[in-house]
Design a protein around this nucleic acid. Structure first.
Lengths: 309, 309
DNA sequence: TTGTATGCGTTATCAC
DNA sequence: GTGATAACGCATACAA
């Protein structure tokens, strides 16, 4: 592990000059540059990133707060994010919270420790005000609607999609609508939003129509049982996999399933022929990075495509 | 952004003492510790990670070479990896290669720059010998069988699974077996392995039975068309999603599909009722981290579960 | 139990 | 064009 000093010694030039060729600065004679480059290659010299980071105060690294890595919603977001980040020479470090507030706080402190140049918040276990003090530590971008706060954010138009879905169901005469939602403990912004919409739009909406803590496919089974007892006529699921599982559960028993609507536009919705939404999550990830990169405080609502089947 | 020096000044103690409380070292009087802690809290002091990294020569960060983030195979691996890493206080940075050799090399150089304490190779675009020089730069773990090289590796027993599948198909009298495989350019170790097995075990095996470059669900359509023309009796797919798409394509046209076997044990295989394999990828990721953590050169073959349907 | 001095490997500010 | 030298913020022998 040669250092910049070794290269300086061996070539006879100063550390400064070596640093200049590392950083592609002008003002260094071509012959010298070539000579230095040769010696660097010979010694397998690679500038130490930690030293550069300390010296420049940058890491070219951003952290992403996510719950876990095996959910299509976050994976699509991640895909767009890493792609965009990479194009600008940034790396992305995964910060899986599993929805645990304490863990999330540790990550915030790591952010404060300048480990990352930026933080992308795709999920949030703490209340928004816990994030405020960290806003001055660097650039934080939220992937959820964040009114009342001066931060950049990019989010899906869940409200529009839900409104359209409910209107469509009602037009079909379906009024008893089951809901699957995520964690019941600390309501996500999205869950809150959907709840409010249901109460606004559905005449006799009852909180009993909600099946909480549905996240992965497996939880769909219990949801199906629940909805069956309840006798719902339709289900707004919070993900294609959960929706598919519900559908399958009915079918296996030879019962007519409710009208299920998914949310990830996955292959399985096509295969099982149920409606779903394309929320453009890849674009969401790309945009999140752009907001970070441009240090923008824009608030961007992404369009959606309802896919009726 | 207070520094350790600021804390030293304000408390009147030396930098060393501050450093000791940061790192939970013994030999510092409880009252002083408390006093220092209080001042740190008051100033929102957080030790700078880049400085720590440079000073200790560690980053508590590992890089993961993967093709992309939206494939169930890698997502499961990633889940196990991040989980295990976090328990030991390590972070994981995504290094998506998209199978591009040049890009992968950049990551290797970043590894050489001490950006990461370790590198997990779940995919590889370059030949193995390109990795050799980097073996001395830090700990590299491979998630593929790596004989003839002194490195730790953990891999799925694809050979066992394929052998069992083929035997089972042959017992059913199915001999014309189609194959979907990944990138056709630089054969993966797994593709090579499967090819060899097919040539060994299937009497009239022809390379024409292979549909290359099947990675995501979408590529399954063309594969289905290809296999239909070919008239294969069974398909060993390289993933549940590809398998499902193939199956659907036949069904849509009212044709009897070949016997399809998947590889990810996803919900969709259950829903469409086709056989698949559980390769214990989450465990694979966990083990990969353990090998890194223990600086082990073990070579571990993971068991598999064939799920017949 | 505490403090001094040095090193970690760069970048950046000068002056030449 | 080029080169000393001072940061960058922390950890750690070594002393005391």
């Amino acid at each position: 592990m040669a250092t910049i000093r070794d290269i300086a010694k061996l070539t006879g030039y100063s550390i400064t000059t070596i640093s200049r060729v590392i950083n592609h600065h002008p003002y260094v004679a071509k012959e010298k540059r070539d000579e230095i480059l040769a010696v660097m290659k010979e010694l397998d010299y690679v500038p130490n990133r930690s030293a550069q980071n300390l010296s420049t105060g940058q890491t070219k690294n951003i952290g992403v707060l996510i719950p876990f890595t095996n959910h299509p919603y976050y994976d699509q977001l991640l895909l767009g994010l890493t792609k965009a980040a990479f194009e600008k020479g940034y790396r992305v470090t995964l910060l899986p919270t599993n929805y645990e507030a304490e863990l999330e706080k540790q990550y915030l402190d790591e952010f404060a420790a300048k480990t990352f140049d930026g933080l992308i918040v795709t999920t949030r276990a703490n209340t928004l005000d816990k994030f405020i003090p960290y806003l001055h530590e660097g650039r934080i971008i939220f992937c959820e609607e964040s009114p009342d706060v001066s931060v950049g954010c990019v989010y899906t138009d869940l409200e529009g999609a839900i409104r359209e879905m409910i209107a469509s169901l009602q037009a079909k005469g379906l009024n008893k609508i089951g809901l699957t939602l995520g964690r019941s403990k600390r309501l996500s912004y999205n869950s809150r939003l959907i709840l409010d919409l249901c109460e606004e739009l559905i005449p006799d909406f009852s909180k009993e129509w909600i099946k909480w803590d549905c996240i992965h496919a497996a939880e769909g089974i219990e949801a199906a049982r629940y909805f069956e007892k309840l006798g719902v006529e339709a289900v707004l699921s919070n993900g294609d996999e959960v929706g598919a599982t519900i559908l399958q559960h009915y079918k296996k028993q030879g019962k007519t399933p409710p009208l299920v609507i998914g949310r990830d536009n996955l292959l399985i919705s096509e295969v099982l022929n149920f409606s779903t939404v394309n929320h453009h999550l890849v674009e969401c990830g790309e945009t999140a990075f752009r907001l970070f990169y441009e240090d923008s405080k824009e608030k961007i609502k992404l369009p959606y495509d309802l896919i009726w089947r």
